[in-house]
Design a protein around this nucleic acid. Structure first.
Length: 835
DNA sequence: ATAGGGTTAG
């Protein structure tokens, strides 16, 4: 059975053909078929679920000015109700193909569709047609839509040009002003939004009736500039204009107060608002979350669930993100599970980004993979077509894989992307991934590729710089670190300067130049807890215990909060500087005077401190007093002390505790084996080595590197692969001969059973740190310090030999091993035996 | 037109 509309279509088609053949029927004749019942018919088709049918009907109509209304309605419905921008534009194209003339009502919808798609190309074409037909000069609606279009596409130049032309021609209304303000807001130019608002409310434009939308545009701008006083003014203005009852204005005000840190005001707004919606609740929840009042945020979220507020995707995502930012990945994943059970909200990019960050925080690789699959499905979806949104998820994935110990997967994703597909964040997460969980050299390679890109498509931001500095710190790459410092000074990083400066302190300290670290610290306008503790950690690594205690006092005087990490740093410094009594003192004070409860890691530090000083009994006492189960770190500290003080019995005890915890690794086995060897219990030593072999535990090979003229030179034990190998070995032999005369006796026990690694290369001469030193001497100008880094702890024989060598060469030797710094100068080492 | 998101330091 044919429906009415289908019959009509047939009729009209026939009429059209007759018109074409005989030429005697007029357009009006055909149009008359649609009046008035036909009109109802077509309207029905347009608002039905069958736009195809409506389209077919419209194509039969003869183009006429009155018929344009149908097209406009069809385009509008497709856009607003079906929310299908692509189809709306398709209909627009059909309209043009059939020779209809769009009017001043068509273009605003068309531009809106282009805007939603962020399609500058489509928008530009449509603009051209509108211009040709004269709408751009005369029609304020069309022009307003154009401003919004260019705003959405991020082409601010075109948007503001449009706006200026409108002002000049005198064709504008409040919507024009709101649109240009919205455009600035979308491009995150909050200052411009405030300027626009100020101008539109000024005396010169008194007849402009500022409306709700104007306020809702300006308030987020105040929030992002932290311009609370402007925000208050807008509040007053809203009250005077009677717009404050509007729920949008209320929500925007609440959000503004929360973002500016006025939580009291935000709460008052919340209570005063008689009608609340889910946005109202969400704004307050995130307000709490952003200033760290997580419990309040969560409490309010729970209340939302109790009060049966219909949660949306924003509510869920906000809570997931809040947990993830606190490092509580597991909790975030629980909330995500709840969300998946809620049929009202489906995850979007923001949710996925937050969940990925939760996976990264908790190392939940399997969940991350699940999200990866889900994201692929989503991205294949046609209405999920925003490139920037896709990139957000991809960045999250790369970061997640890197943090879940799958740097190679992360790297493969990154490499498969094409160098221009990613944005700054993509590069930053990859650089950070390599720097922290992979090969730090790869991080620096990417960084230099990024800054040397001639097209300057990607400019490093504060995050990128921080990641690069982390890589420098790991590699002891002082020269590159200094270059980055210079880069930082040339390019202001304003708001993020605190973060970057903290990274600089860390980089300088870890690269052996603790004075530069201090210089950065002293020249900082603003410091936080991290700045102070980073500097203290730096001093601690270099054995400057007294300085650490001074800085600690300065930190207290500055009124900064002292937490568990601060004390850990202090105790570590005391331990590496031999300040046993001071260390004990601080340990006792931390709970009593500062209310910081010592954790297992503090006990481990104390065991280390007492153990080094030979006070093993006290160390054992302390362990027995622990209120929690001793962790592996505690027993490792004890084991280390047993090696220094040759206590086999206690070492065996510590080792058996470690074995209970199943925390043995190459380091602990080697320690035990060396303790046995040192005591002459060779059989036991060999037994341990055998156990290692059976369990398949391999020693990491010792490896040292040193900064050459151009690049970093890396040496393994007995390494002869370097181009200068011959010269290196010759020099080393010569040096050893010379220091033997001075009294150096090679400690052969290290040749067989070296301190921390398998470097029992046949000759002590071949140890990696000695090779690195010889290379450093050959390549450094006289007088300049030689900076060596070793992945494990320095070997005892090497330590003695280098101490002697420092007497006869023109360089200070700065050696960083896995435990601390050794500054060798004029025949002595700064570690004074504490290592 | 208002609310949520990815990358950094002890």
């Amino acid at each position: 059975m044919l429906t009415t509309i289908q019959r009509k279509i047939k009729l009209i088609k026939a009429a059209k053909i007759r018109f074409a053949i005989h030429g005697y029927e007029t357009i009006n004749d055909i149009d008359s078929h649609f009046q008035p019942s036909n009109h109802t018919c077509i309207m029905e088709a347009i608002s039905s679920n069958s736009p195809e049918q409506a389209l077919a009907a419209l194509q039969c109509l003869w183009p006429s000015a009155s018929g344009v209304f149908y097209w406009n309605t069809l385009i509008k419905n497709t856009l607003l109700y079906a929310q299908d921008c692509v189809k709306a534009l398709h209909i627009f194209r059909q309209m043009l193909r059939f020779n209809w003339k769009p009017d001043g009502y068509t273009y605003p919808y068309v531009f809106k569709a282009c805007g939603e798609l962020k399609s500058f190309q489509w928008g530009g074409c449509a603009h051209g047609i509108a211009f040709r037909d004269g709408f751009v000069h005369s029609n304020v609606f069309v022009c307003n839509a154009l401003i919004a279009l260019y705003g959405r596409c991020g082409v601010l130049d075109d948007a503001s040009k449009m706006f200026d032309e409108m002002l000049q021609r005198g064709i504008y209304d409040v919507i024009s002003w709101n649109s240009i303000a919205a455009a600035y807001l979308q491009s995150r130019n909050a200052q411009k939004v405030l300027d626009v608002f100020r101008l539109m409310t000024s005396k010169g434009h008194i007849w402009l009736r500022t409306d709700v939308v104007s306020l809702v545009n300006v308030l987020p701008a105040c929030a992002s500039l932290n311009a609370w006083s402007n925000g208050r003014e807008v509040h007053g203005y809203a009250v005077r204009r009677g717009l404050v009852e509007d729920i949008f204005v209320g929500n925007a005000l609440l959000d503004m107060y929360a973002k500016c840190g006025f939580m009291d005001e935000a709460e008052r707004m919340f209570e005063r608002m008689e009608i609340k919606d889910v946005v109202t609740w969400n704004a307050l929840v995130t307000g709490y979350s952003q200033i760290g009042r997580y419990d309040d945020a969560l409490g309010l979220f729970e209340k939302m669930r109790e009060e049966k507020i219909k949660l949306n995707v924003v509510s869920w995502s906000a809570v997931i993100a809040g947990y993830a930012q606190r490092g509580l990945g597991e909790e975030a994943l629980d909330v995500f599970r709840d969300m998946m059970r809620d049929s009202n909200s489906e995850p979007n990019v923001v949710t996925l980004a937050s969940v990925l960050s939760a996976c990264a925080a908790s190392g939940t690789l399997y969940k991350g993979r699940e999200i990866h699959c889900y994201a692929i499905k989503k991205m294949l979806n046609l209405d999920w077509n925003d490139m920037e949104d896709d990139l957000m998820v991809i960045n999250g994935l790369i970061d997640m894989y890197a943090k879940c110990e799958s740097v190679n997967v992360a790297s493969r994703m990154f490499e498969s992307m094409g160098r221009t597909d990613g944005n700054v964040v993509t590069w930053t997460v990859m650089i950070g991934g390599h720097a922290q969980h992979g090969e730090a050299n790869d991080a620096l390679g990417l960084f230099s590729e990024m800054v040397s890109d001639k097209n300057k498509l990607l400019v490093p931001n504060a995050f990128t710089i921080s990641c690069a500095l982390v890589a420098c710190a790991r590699l002891n790459a002082l020269r590159l670190g200094r270059q980055i410092h210079a880069y930082v000074l040339r390019n202001r990083f304003e708001s993020a300067m605190l973060f970057v400066a903290n990274c600089l302190i860390d980089m300088y300290a870890k690269s052996g130049d603790v004075h530069a670290a201090r210089f950065v610290f002293d020249s900082m306008g603003q410091k936080n807890t991290i700045s102070w503790t980073t500097l203290m950690t730096g001093y601690g690594m270099h054995g400057f215990g007294e300085e650490v205690l001074q800085v600690f006092n300065g930190m207290r005087k500055a009124g900064l909060p002292i937490d568990g990490v601060t004390f850990l740093v202090v105790l570590y410094a005391c331990s590496h500087s031999g300040l046993v009594d001071q260390g004990m003192d601080y340990f006792n004070k931390m709970r009593r005077d500062f209310g910081v409860v010592p954790g297992a890691e503090h006990y481990a530090c104390m065991v280390d401190l007492l153990g080094r000083a030979g006070r093993l009994k006290e160390a054992m006492n302390l362990i027995s007093m622990m209120s929690m189960k001793p962790t592996a770190a505690v027993w490792v500290a004890l084991l280390g002390a047993c090696r220094i003080h040759a206590n086999v019995e206690l070492a065996e005890y510590a080792a058996s505790r470690l074995s209970e915890l199943e925390c043995e690794n190459d380091g602990t086995y080697t320690l035990l084996s060396n303790i046995y060897a040192n005591a002459g219990r060779w059989k036991d030593a060999i037994r341990i080595r055998f156990v290692m072999k059976r369990k398949g535990i391999k020693k990491r090979p010792g490896c040292s590197w040193v900064q050459g003229k151009k690049e970093t030179a890396t040496f393994y034990v007995g390494d002869r692969s370097h181009a200068m190998s011959e010269k290196i070995y010759d020099l080393l032999e010569d040096l050893i001969d010379r220091i033997k005369v001075m009294g150096y006796i090679p400690d052969t026990s290290f040749a067989l059973h070296d301190v921390d690694d398998e470097e029992k290369g046949d000759l002590l001469v071949e140890h990696s740190e000695k090779l690195a030193l010889a290379y450093g001497i050959l390549t450094s100008p006289p007088g300049l310090p030689i900076r060596i880094t070793k992945n494990l702890r320095v070997c005892g024989d090497c330590h003695i030999a280098i101490t002697y060598i420092s007497k006869i060469i023109e360089h200070e030797i700065i050696l960083r091993d896995s435990s601390r710094f050794h500054h060798f100068k004029d025949g002595s080492c700064s570690c004074k035996g504490y290592w």
